[in-house]
Amino acid sequence: MDRRSFLQRLTFFGGGVVLLGSGACSRCGAPAGPSEPQATAPSEPPHLTFTRAEYAVVAAACERVLPRDEDPGAQDAGVPVYIDRMLQTPELTRMRQDFIQGVAALERRSLRMFQVGFAQATPAQQDELLALFKDSPGGSGEAHFFELLMVLTLEGFLGDPSYGGNQAQVGWKLVGFDTVGTVASAPPEGHDGTRCLHTCGRQP
């Protein structure tokens, strides 16, 4: 663990106040390149953040981060829905821009390497490409996008289900969070995390 990330871990809290670390990184844009042409007609509103084509890439990428095996995977948990919704948070505008640029870069690289879009590539090809992004030099757009993808996927998989991910608490079941002493103190019925992010303690 490098010194800076250790510094930011603030372990004394135990809870990990990481705040999507690299979102703070203003100079880390995604790789430069021509912007992706709009894949869907403006009349189609299937998602909040992504076009239909982008959403397919996001869904495929999340699923490679946490694939379905004997336990549910990212799509089973609703992770793409989580990311699509979460990136609507006004404070995360820069992250949204970086993420969408990263999706476009992933798609471009897939077309160049495999002659098919990322969502149509084989799982082995998708893994190869994601590993390439993951192992890119720290501070590069590729590494930054992979970190965002990883963190948002884990948030969607293991966060409160009210944000749209972790459906049927499949993420909590995978890591055993449902068996430690926190069951009795889950959020109250009807808790809406997305709304709370904007209103808790901020209403007069």
Partner: peptide, 16 residues
Amino acid sequence: DFIHDEILNSRRNFFM
């Protein structure tokens, strides 16, 4: 307002 929601408490600007 103190809800056991990791995203709210630990990963956004609820406190920090």
